[in-house]
Computed example of a mutant assay.
Amino acid sequence: MSRVVVTGRIPEAAVEKLRAEHEVDAWQGPESIGREELLRRVAGAHAVVSLLTERIDFELLDAAGPQLKVVANVAVGYDNIDVAACTERGIVATNTPGVLTDATADIALGLILMATRRLGEGERLVRSGRPWTWGMFFLLGSSLRGKTLGIVGMGGIGQATARRARAFGMEIIYQSRSEIDPGIAAELGARRVDLDELLSVSDIVSVHCPYGPATHHLIGAEQLAIMKDSAYLINTARGPIVDEAALASALGDGQIAGAGLDVYENEPRVHPGLLELENVALVPHLGSATVETRTAMAMLAADNTLAVLSDQRPPAPIN
Rank of each mutant, 00 (worst) to 15 (best):
G8P: 06
L18C: 08
A20K: 15
A20D: 11
D25G: 05
Q28S: 10
Q28W: 02
G34P: 05
L39A: 07
L52F: 15
I56N: 00
D57K: 00
A63E: 10
A64V: 09
L68E: 01
A72M: 03
V74Y: 00
A75K: 01
G77V: 11
N80S: 07
I91S: 05
A93H: 12
A93I: 09
A93G: 09
A105P: 13
L113K: 10
M114C: 15
A115R: 06
T116R: 03
F137M: 11
L139G: 03
G146M: 08
G146N: 10
K147E: 09
K147N: 07
M154D: 11
A160G: 04
A162V: 01
R163P: 11
R164K: 08
A165M: 11
M170Y: 00
Y174H: 06
S178Y: 09
I180M: 13
A185N: 10
A185P: 07
G189Q: 04
G189S: 04
R191L: 07
D196V: 15
V205A: 03
V207K: 05
H208T: 08
H208W: 02
P210M: 02
Y211V: 02
A214K: 14
H216N: 03
E222D: 15
I226R: 15
I234T: 07
D243H: 12
A245D: 11
A250R: 04
G254Y: 00
V263C: 07
E265L: 07
P268T: 08
P268D: 12
V270Q: 11
H271T: 07
P272W: 15
P272V: 12
G273C: 08
G273D: 11
L275D: 08
E278S: 14
E278C: 05
E278D: 13
A281S: 15
V283W: 02
V283P: 09
P284L: 00
P284N: 01
H285Y: 00
T290K: 08
A296H: 02
M297R: 08
A302P: 09
L309I: 09
